[in-house]
Design a binder for these strands. Structure first.
Lengths: 424, 424, 424
DNA sequence: ATCGTTCTAGAATATTCGGCA
DNA sequence: CTGCCGAATATTCTAGAACGA
């Protein structure tokens, strides 16, 4: 009877107790009135539920509950066969219970081993899908959120970095601008030096001529002008479409930052006291305006102390003419000293208008030069030139009183003149 | 019987049929042997399952299945009371089935309305949870999406910023390079000045020698080289490949494009007439081109009018030697003028190689100095020095024909020679 | 009879009980007078509602309510067939009830499985919504994930870019610093030149005095040195609030802080003692400090040598004091020679080492010069030259001891002296 | 750890009720 | 008014889960 499981023999699949018992129950001819094979052995029927539960079940199982039995059936995949007459209200006794399973066929006990007990793996579908996916999504979202925050932080840090970079670049640009200005000044200086040379040369000729006894007064201004102008003029004003600068040799660098307003300030203070020697002082401002327009920063530094080196000119004694001349000229950009001065000063980096030399200033300068030369000529020609130590001293002072190179030339020239004077 | 539900009256909570029937069943004294109140009316018991199912159930429900009945009980929240004696296998048949519910108490029919049928609470729960979570997730996702877009924007803006930064840096680099070149040139200039100083000494000697009446043709090229070129500077037009400017003093600053390595070219053309002759001044414009290109503007200004002032050097008569010499030489690096020229030209926009002076050049320079000194020595030691007026004029030309500093030296030397000549 | 459902066999679609029972009812020939196939088996008709409900329904269902039956029919998608004669109010009682369904055709029991019971759209809705939303969320999340990764990549690339930018900026800063130093040197040089000019003037006085009969031999090289240096050294110390530099010609370059808009301050104070008075030289280093500190990169360039050379200026009387001073001082930037020297040297500190002259080389050069001069001296002294040999030699030394421009002046000055000497 | 038992729940269908167009 | 439908409940079948062996 209960050999179903045992009969399967050793090595065979151990058919669960329930199946074995069920097989035995159904097979047992003695209980056919209670439970028996159904339609051609394709299913089995419990004909008398009452008796089955109370009489048979306890013999095979630990209970007399048909519910438990049915539960087992379901657990093993058996399905109830729905009878048409089920619905009958007046059904009464005929309520037979019929179950079937693909592998529970009369005469095929060997199929039993294919019947497997269900292990809760079904319910997955809906909830699993839903909840699972949902949880997956949730975790994923959380992960992404973290990632996002992370990225946020990185982005912020990069932002800061970038700001710093901008500051750096701005500073660099400013520095560059500063340097450029300096360079420009130096170049101007050198050029003015060179041009000054020329002028001197030209003038010398004249001077010579004049010295010979000509009419110094004839020197038309323009005449001298030209070369001179030319000399400097070398620095020319080409109009930049941007029109930011229009004169002189301009090396302009307009950068972006307003900040750069800072300037190197170089003040030249000359205080040379020399006996009896006239001093020539000359100063000028070289306001270098730089139009800078920063992107966002806007602190303009008014650090430019517009420091004007004043020269008290306590000149005196002989040669004051020269002094006068000197004093007469202002803003002569070509004067190396002033150029240097401006280079050093350069603090006037106010707003825009990188006004180097205004054309008028240049004009003034040129005029100045002319005047100076004329007077020099006059002096030299109408002189008796006795070189006493004093006059000499005067000349020497004149000679070295200036800082710039053009003076050197002038000095040389002067010496030459003196020499000429000496030569009988 | 079935008034349980109906009896509750109108307006009252409509107690479900099952509860009403159950109440009636339990209350019915006639069925107390099958179903009745349990422990003090706190629960009810089915004393005879068999009879209850087959006899009573059909009277109240459309089935005779105790399972269905129990299902309903569970559906309404009734719980089975586990009897101790239940576990016994051989327990007497009287194994009663006992159920209880908080609101199913004997004598308290009014509580029944509190008993609610579970309507797939599970499903509702699940759905609720699902939907809830889902909406949570949705909102979260949406939030993240916004955040992401936000970040996207920020990133893009930073990207733009970075590009601008690159441009800036590039511009700065270029500007720097430009400056470096300029600096290099200036340095070269200064160095050449220094060396020129010496060299001039050498040259002077030769000039003197020649002036003596010797063989002008002996003028070694290099020797004279310097001064001459210098003198006339011999208008040098260096052709900038970019050809934007080729004359005049040009200091060009083209920032933006790295490639164009454009250079400021500064050509100086000096044409000085020889002795006694008035000098023709010739001026040229000094177009200052500044191409400053901000980040995006890209106007390359070809404003440099390639103005080439050529001076056919119609010099003549005396001193033509110098002239000839002049024409002969070009680009002697030691010549200050040429150095300046190159500074201004700056066409050497090679890579970085802020090529100042190559070591060999310096060596040459040193050698030059040595030679100069030696020659100077020689000259000084064996002197006869007779200066003719011609030679003088020549010298004067020589003296002023040049613009650079070396001229100063030359002039000084010349003066010295003159002096020597004067001294009996 | 009961085969409707059962007959479907195992694995077949389990036709719902209602459909099976309905099929059975309609098919059953015994009930054809109550319910039977309609128009050619395309539908079925309930011919006698009363008898059908009261006699047949209970046999198949748990009710005798034709409404419930019809409800089920509707539930399964059956539609009532409206008979034309239905509209008649006085239509005979025999008004049959006719229903039809696309898959309920006589002779095609196999189609039954296609008939689906309508499920409370609610549940479906919920599920659908759930699933729908879930999938939406899923796809969205996925999309965002991609986007995030994308952004991640971009961010990383920008990060790299930024690093490169930092490097660039750093390099630029360094380059700038280098240039600044160079410029500073050049400026110093020029200034020293100018001041040298002055000094020369002073010296001239001395020279004259000396030449008059003093002890020229006292002029040691160093001696001359001092004044010169001093000349520039005048360069004065203005106190920059930033206190980073406090002396001399200062060109300061502070990059990092935008605000501090530090200023290069270059103060030149010339204090030239009057004739015969010793000059006080004072020099200081011009430390150019560049404090650059990026946010995260932390390469602090130790470019700031915090080198403060102070010269207590114990200048005094004539001569040797100066010598002492001299020996005491090294690397006096104000000395043109040293300035140039430093300029040239400075290349070593840069990156690529635009190797100029090595300090030793320069030294060699100087020595060379000295030697040459000595020899020259010797030669000259052995001459008949009217000069006091000594004084001349001295002058020569003076003449060639320096390479810089001040020499030009010095030379001129020397010439002048010579001239004086010549003039009877 | 699998299986068995029991209680409970899920799910589909069934029945009923009520509403709507 | 009635066919159709939503909703609540009922019935049935099956499954989940706890617990014990």
């Amino acid at each position: 009877m209960k050999e179903a499981a045992a009969a399967s023999g050793p090595g065979a699949a151990p058919v669960p107790g329930f199946l074995a018992k069920l097989w035995a129950l159904v097979e047992d001819p003695g209980s056919d009135d209670v439970i028996a094979w159904g339609r051609d052995g394709q299913s089995f029927c419990i004909l008398n539920e009452q008796r089955f539960a109370k009489e048979l079940l306890p013999k095979y199982f630990k209970h007399n509950n048909i519910c438990s039995f049915i539960r087992q059936l379901n657990m093993y995949g058996f399905r109830k066969v729905i009878a048409l007459e089920n619905g009958m209200i007046t059904a009464e006794k005929s309520a037979a219970i019929e179950f079937q399973h693909p592998f529970f066929k009369q005469g095929n006990a060997n199929l039993l081993e294919n019947i497997k007990r269900k292990v809760s793996a079904v319910r997955a579908e809906d909830l699993r899908v839903c909840s699972e996916d949902l949880h997956k999504v949730l975790s994923e979202v959380q992960e992404m959120r973290e990632q996002q925050n992370n990225m946020d932080v990185r982005l912020a840090s990069m932002r800061r970095e970038n700001k710093a970079l901008w500051k750096e670049v701005s500073a660099l640009r400013q520095k560059h601008s500063q340097q450029q200005k300096l360079l420009s000044k130096i170049l101007q200086f050198i050029l003015s030096l060179m041009s000054g040379n020329y002028i001197v040369g030209v003038k010398r000729k004249r001077s010579l001529t004049d010295a010979t006894g000509a009419t110094p007064s004839k020197f038309s201004r323009q005449y001298i002008h030209l070369p001179v102008e030319h000399g400097n003029a070398v620095a020319i004003s080409e109009h930049d479409p941007n029109s930011e600068n229009d004169t002189g040799i301009i090396i302009q660098d307009i950068t972006n930052t307003v900040d750069d307003a800072t300037d190197g300030l170089l003040a030249l203070v000359h205080t040379s006291g020399s006996d009896g020697a006239p001093q020539t002082a000359q100063e000028q401002d070289l306001p270098v305006c730089e139009a800078s327009q920063p992107i966002e920063l806007s602190h303009t530094e008014p650090d430019c102390p517009a420091q004007v080196a004043d020269n008290p000119l306590k000149s005196s004694a002989v040669g004051n003419d020269a002094v006068e001349l000197h004093s007469a000229q202002v803003n002569a950009p070509e004067d190396p000293a002033s150029v240097i001065d401006s280079i050093l000063n350069e603090s006037n980096s106010t707003t825009q208008s990188n006004a180097f030399l205004e054309r008028e200033e240049i004009q003034d300068f040129l005029n100045c030069i002319d005047t100076s030369l004329e007077e020099l000529q006059a002096m030299l020609s109408g002189k008796k030139l006795n070189f006493g130590s004093e006059s000499f001293s005067d000349v020497s002072v004149f000679l070295f009183a200036h800082f710039d190179f053009s003076n050197v030339i002038i000095e040389a020239f002067t010496l030459f003149l003196l020499m000429l004077a000496f030569i009988p």
